[in-house]
Structures are given as structure tokens and as C-alpha cells.
Design a protein around this nucleic acid. Structure first.
Lengths: 229, 229
DNA sequence: AAACACCAAAATGTCGACACTATCACAAAA
DNA sequence: TTTTGTGATAGTGTCGACATTTTGGTGTTT
């Protein structure tokens, strides 16, 4: 997900960090699950040192928690945290869009329509290749946000996206079937592009917030389904 | 700075993490300085493993950079990054204030006037005990921002504050004397409290942005002074 | 001189080993 | 039956050691 390709140039810690993060975000390791060193060593084929380094990094990213002398656990999930992450994400995304509309140049607009086109072409293949659709969806929104031209803000945005994607994946995992209702709302995308090209900041911010808060409400509705397990 | 008191309950990695972060933020380790293991072992009196764990965490916080087989370095500084951090910080702080004014209750307002009072009482002692003033200044702004009631957003805010404080400390270190011009602007604080109590969101956001961007301009002005070294 | 090859010293990244701590099952006592 | 003690077992946190890589200096060649 992050640095998908296996980086042989990096040290073990960095490689394991990527794989472990992916395993947590995709739900291979469940929330609150204890992360036994023996198991991790087995799975990633490395010693304790690189593992502890990777886990240390994931603590900062709030995907792992640690308790002294009691090892590491996957960060727990809660409806409250989920809602807070999505709300913050909505605000940050709106902030990016606001700044992007201020600083936005032709290059930026071109990037958006290009990404929108690639997403549109995949419109009907969501069911077959959800992963590729995911990538294009993400690329679409990143194209929009990147117009803010602020590495710091975009870094925050990415971190929040990752944390949210864990909740999203857990939801997908525990409610087999219609992912469409979740966030395949082409209409919203089209509307968004429209108001962005028109330079309507107020409307764009409203749209993007709804685009993110809608899914969070869907997650909240079905919360009991995968929380009572 | 973060967990000031020495946590004997935590493992070495966490303890060293705090001390090392402090040493970087306060400028004991200069930007771009190589972090020799031998030196770190000497300074913190621990082995390599906890050190690498602490350094790994600081990589995520973007206070340290690593290159495979070439060890760790303090994250470099640049005028561009400094400006970006301060601008993002201004936007985030304004966001916190906006949300705080929406969700704000009496408790929140009380916290602000209390913190403002404690800051006011220290108004004339800045020169003597700058550190205590710093604490109260920080507490004042945190009291305001905390009204947004979003742990996620406040976490982002703290992380940006820390990164910015490094630039601030470097500046203080390299330009001995009058820190007053920097951010001792009581008037701005008073004005801010005033408009907050009046519930004037637009004015509050303008004020807080200026309160943060002013200093960043001061830093940019004097940039050449401590960058040409 | 400048560029290059080469070697010694130092530094990094990883692992296995060791001491210390927590966990769990089971027995003894209330 | 519930509580309390007691080992055995498993797991964690840290260090020292080792292989590999980088660094810096010295001498050689162009």
C-alpha cells in the first residue's frame, strides 16, 4: 500500500515496517491482537531487532500500542475514534481544497480531469477489480488535494487516510458484498470536478465533507455488526 | 518537553526517545548533524537496540533521517520547510478555533480565561524565566485549541508545534537577546480572548493566523543569519 | 597536480544469548 | 467453591559480538 514494491535497498526494519503496516491496515492482524515476537519472526523471517524498530515506528503512527514488559498489540478500534478520524479527515481535505483553489494553476486542473477520466473508465469494473478502482479513486482525490502545494499538509492528509483505510477495510472484510453503497458515488465525483473547475470554493468544501462523512455514517451504522465479535 | 519527568516505568527506548527529541528540538544536536552511535551510547548510557528504536520513531516524526548503511542524521532545515510548517500550523490552529467556537461550552471559555490570567501574571517576567513563560504561553493556546474536542486534530496540532519549535529554538539560539519582538505580543493575546468570548469566528481565525505567520516572517528575515554558518 | 586504486579503521545492521518479568496451570488453604 | 500460593513455561528488553559496508588516508600512475 505505502511502498508496495519490495525495497531491497532498504534495511530490514523499513521493509518489515511496510509489510506490517499493510497487514494491519488490511486486517490480517485484527484490532487489539497481540503481536507475538515468535509469530512475527516466523512471518517476516527476520530477527527481533528489525521487528522492534518497525513496531516502534507504527506506535508513532498509532497503528500499534505497547505496554512495558507486555509487548506489542495492534491499536484498538472504537466507534468514537473512527468518527473523529473521519471528521478530521473531512476538515483537512476541505482545507486542502480551499488552498488548492487559491494556488491552483492549469497544471493542477489538468491533473484532476486526467485522474477523473481514468476513474470514470473504471466505473463499471469496480466489482471485478476493486483494488485497481481503489488506486484510481485515491489518485483522483490526491490529484485534487495536491494543489495545496503544502508537503506538510499533504503528509498529515496521508497519515489520516491510512488510519481511516483500516476502518474501511475492516468494514469491507466483515460485511461481504455491496461495497458500492459505501463510496462508489460517481455523481459526487462529477459534481466535485464541476464546482472545482468553476472555482466555487464554498460548494467544493461542502461536497468533499459530505463525500467523507457519508461513509463514516455508514460505518457507524454497521458498527455493531463487526464490533460484536 | 514532551514527557519531561524521567519515566522509570517506560523502557529505555521510550526514555531515550524523549531525551533525544528534546536534544534535537532545543538544538543540542544541530540540523544535519550525524548521529554517531558511539556518541549516543556515551550520552544516554544505553546500548544500540534502544537507540535504534528511539531513532526509528523520530524518523516518523521527521526529526531524523536515515540512509541505509550510513546511519542517522538530524533532519535538515530549510526556509521552505519552515514556512510550510508555519503556514500549515496557522491553518490547523484556525481550524481548531473554528470547531472550538462551534462546540465550545462554558468549561472551555473558563479554561481560556484561566490560562490567559496565568499568562498575564508572567507578562513582565519573560526575560527572567523564559521557560516558564513558554509553558504558560503554550498552555494558553492549547486551552483554546482543545475546545475542538478532537483528539486526532489535536495530535496533528502537537506534532506541528514540535516541529516548529525546533526552528524557533534555533532562532533563539543564534540571535541572542530580544525574544520580545518574536512572539511576546500581549496585545494579540488580549484581542484573541476578546473576539473568542464574543464568538466572532471570522475575526478569531484572522487573528490566530497572523499570530503565527508573523513569527514565521521574522524567522525568514533572519534566516540568512543562522543559515550561513 | 589530479585521478585512481588500495588498505586500515570505524560505523552500521543484524542476530543470538541472557536476565528479568509476566502468564498460566495446579495444588493448598480458607 | 473461592481464594491464595507456587512453579514451570513462555515472552520481553537489552547487550555484546559478528559480518558487511562506508570512510579516509596513503601511495601510485597518468
Amino acid at each position: 500500500m505505502a511502498g508496495s514494491a519490495i525495497d531491497n535497498k532498504n534495511n530490514f526494519a523499513a521493509q518489515v515496517m511496510g509489510r506490517l503496516k499493510n497487514d494491519i491496515l488490511t486486517g490480517y492482524f485484527q484490532p487489539n491482537e497481540k503481536l507475538l515476537m515468535s509469530r512475527l519472526k516466523e512471518r517476516y523471517q527476520v530477527g527481533v531487532s528489525p521487528l522492534r524498530e518497525a513496531l516502534s515506528q507504527l506506535i508513532v503512527e498509532q497503528l500499534v500500542v505497547v505496554e512495558n514488559q507486555r509487548g506489542f498489540k495492534v491499536h484498538p478500534v472504537s466507534e468514537l475514534e473512527m468518527l473523529d478520524i473521519y471528521q478530521t479527515r473531512a476538515e483537512i481535505e476541505a482545507l486542502c481544497i480551499g488552498l488548492a483553489l487559491e494556488h491552483g494553476d492549469d497544471e493542477w486542473e489538468a491533473g484532476i480531469v486526467a485522474a477523473a477520466h481514468k476513474l470514470h473508465k473504471y466505473q463499471d469494473l469496480v466489482e471485478q477489480e476493486p483494488q485497481e478502482w481503489e488506486l484510481r479513486h485515491q489518485a483522483f482525490h490526491t490529484a485534487i488535494a495536491s494543489g495545496c502545494k503544502s508537503p506538510t499538509l499533504l503528509h498529515v492528509r496521508r497519515s489520516l487516510y491510512e488510519k481511516a483505510s483500516r476502518y474501511r477495510n475492516l468494514w469491507l472484510k466483515n460485511t461481504m458484498s455491496n461495497r458500492i453503497a459505501f463510496d462508489v458515488n460517481h455523481q459526487e465525483h462529477n459534481q466535485l470536478v464541476e464546482v472545482l473547475m468553476a472555482g466555487d470554493m464554498v460548494q467544493a468544501k461542502i461536497l468533499i465533507k459530505e463525500h467523507l462523512l457519508g461513509p463514516s455514517r455508514a460505518l457507524a451504522e454497521h458498527w455493531s455488526a463487526f464490533s460484536a465479535e
